[in-house]
Amino acid sequence: MTETKDNIIVVKDLYKFFGDVKALNGVNLEVGRGSVVVVIGPSGSGKSTMLRCINWLEKPTSGEIWIDGKLMTSAPKQLNETRAEIGMVFQLFNLFPHLTAMENVTLAQKVVRGRSKEEAKEIAMQQLERVGIPEKADAYPRKLSGGQQQRVAIARSLAMNPKIMLFDEPTSALDPEMIKEVLDVMLDLASEGMTMVCVSHEMGFTRSAADEIIFMDEGLIVEHTTPDGLFNNPQHDRTKLFLSQILQH
């Protein structure tokens, strides 16, 4: 094992092609334990694909991904075990509509972690309280607002006690007034020392929570720096252009 212990995620020479479309063109990335990394970039730049490759929702065309010192492979058992350690929050929430908020949060705990019904419920309630909606435990997703659904989705991931949380544009499908409630939860998480990789264009969140920021374009990491460095001193023309476009309003 050549990986240093501090890097909980190591991505090496990651390529991903969808037919002729080259979504990722050799991405290299190291994420330290407990750090918050925000990924920005224009649409189609491969941000989401990279995130989805990290927990193997997309199988890489080539390259290596190491999670907590273990190389990810397609072997089902190891894959399931590793995925349980990586929480993923989706743009469209992907709550299970046939289950209540509580059941959404308890199901994987019971099925994957093998926890008892009571234990799972207790942990689920803690997580629902943490995201601020314990009173919605018995509500079905369709009765919840977008912001509430996303917070249940975060609780669902957190209940598995993951080592890493991946956020794939968690606020881009939300009405403006609901964005804050989700970002607040994410800020809390960041301050508690969770390792987070977020694809997000919420610049306020990026400024206050991100340790590192990555700018991607055309399947490559163009710039990997601190938020300060990016906003005040972008190195590449492509980055400058992108920032000028998203920050001018």
Partner: peptide, 29 residues
């Protein structure tokens, strides 16, 4: 929706578990 399977798998469920607990109950309905 494909997102249902992805969400289930991302929580560490195996394909049969995701089918049984997430996809089939919705599909049968």
């Amino acid at each position: 929706e494909h997102g249902q399977m992805e969400a289930a798998r991302s929580l560490g469920m195996s394909y049969p578990q995701a089918m049984l607990h997430i996809i089939l109950p919705q599909a049968v309905r």
